[in-house]
Computed example of a mutant assay.
Amino acid sequence: MSSHRLLPGAVDSPVVLHVPHSSREIPEWVRHGIDLDDAALALELDHITDAHTAAIAAAGADAAAVRPWQFVNGLSRLVIDPERFPDEREEMLAVGMGAVYTRTTHSERLRPADTDPRPLVERYFHPYARAMTAAVTDRLETVGRAVIVDVHSYPTEPLPYELHSDGPRPPICLGTDPFHTPPDLLAAAERAFAGFGGTGLDSPFAGTYVPLDFHGKDSRVSALMIEIRRDVYMSEPGGPPGPGMARLGAALAELVDSI
């Protein structure tokens, strides 16, 4: 079971579709360290997984005129969350959700609070970060720029773990970075996703993923997070996809082609 996979795109595409939270897979040795019984774990995975986002990214890649690259996490974020800081910089540590979670979406115990995160961080987090850094480096060396488009989803109603749940929850939330999200990339996303009832900015989730080697340093790396409210395309929590899936794939392809 690989912790990640890179699906090649066109050699001249700068776009990397990053899908970090779509999987429910948990290796057996990691499962032994989780305190939830099987039923409770399945329910937690329903809430925490960005279900079907890998399929949305794949549909967008298939429909794009110039195929983007796809970097997909093959493991659940309950193993490690590759988009967290692995140290005290991470604000989600306040709710037990740093790089290795100790609490659930409903603030219940997932692992003992004193769990040593280092074995999971060393085995999964750092290799994932290195591989994503290599993918971005390859785009820079090949085409001179890289554009990371994070593909996420979020629940229609806020969950207890959310630190910023009091703002708008639009059908499409666009997460930005002040250094890495240029105005033309944001405008292109607003146009591409205009048909879903509205886009919002950095609420309920803000920011976007850039490998730390480039973060705040290399303006050739652009990034934008697409957060899709789950009622747009699926039954919640953890249910099957609906007709919104195809429209989202087409919108993502439109964004990719505009880049």
Results as ranks from 00 to 15, higher is better:
M1E: 05
S3W: 02
L6W: 01
G9A: 09
G9W: 05
A10Q: 03
A10H: 09
D12A: 10
P14G: 06
V15Y: 07
V16S: 04
L17F: 11
H18L: 10
S22F: 05
S23C: 09
R24F: 09
E25V: 11
I26A: 12
E28T: 06
E28W: 08
W29G: 08
W29P: 08
D38R: 14
L41N: 04
L41C: 06
L45W: 03
L45C: 05
D46E: 02
H47T: 04
I48T: 10
T49W: 03
T49Q: 02
H52G: 02
A59R: 14
A61D: 10
A61I: 12
A63W: 11
A63R: 15
A63K: 14
A64D: 06
R67F: 11
R67V: 15
Q70W: 02
V72H: 04
R77P: 07
R77N: 11
R77M: 08
R77G: 10
L78C: 13
F85M: 15
F85W: 15
F85E: 14
D87Y: 06
E88W: 04
E90F: 02
E91H: 07
L93K: 00
V95M: 00
G96Q: 00
G96I: 00
G98T: 02
A99Y: 07
A99F: 07
Y101F: 14
T102F: 05
T105W: 02
T105S: 15
S107V: 10
E108L: 15
R109Y: 13
R109S: 13
R109G: 11
L110M: 15
T115W: 10
R123Y: 08
F125N: 00
Y128Q: 01
R130N: 06
T133R: 09
T133F: 02
V136R: 00
V136A: 01
D138L: 00
A146V: 09
I148R: 09
D150R: 04
H152F: 02
P155M: 10
T156D: 07
T156R: 13
E157L: 10
E157C: 05
P158F: 07
Y161D: 06
H164G: 07
H164W: 12
S165K: 07
P170C: 12
P171H: 09
P171E: 12
T176G: 12
P178D: 08
F179S: 03
F179A: 09
H180I: 05
D184E: 14
L185C: 12
A189M: 12
E190G: 04
A192Y: 10
G195V: 14
G195L: 14
G195I: 15
G198M: 14
G198R: 14
G198A: 14
L201K: 14
F205W: 15
A206E: 13
G207K: 07
P211Y: 00
P211S: 06
D213H: 10
G216T: 13
G216Q: 13
K217Q: 15
D218H: 13
V221D: 02
S222F: 04
M225E: 04
E227D: 15
I228L: 14
R229A: 12
R230I: 08
D231A: 13
D231M: 06
G238Q: 01
G238K: 00
G238R: 01
P240S: 08
P240H: 07
G242C: 02
G242M: 04
M245G: 01
A246H: 08
R247C: 05
L248V: 01
L248D: 00
L255M: 03
L255Y: 01
L255P: 01
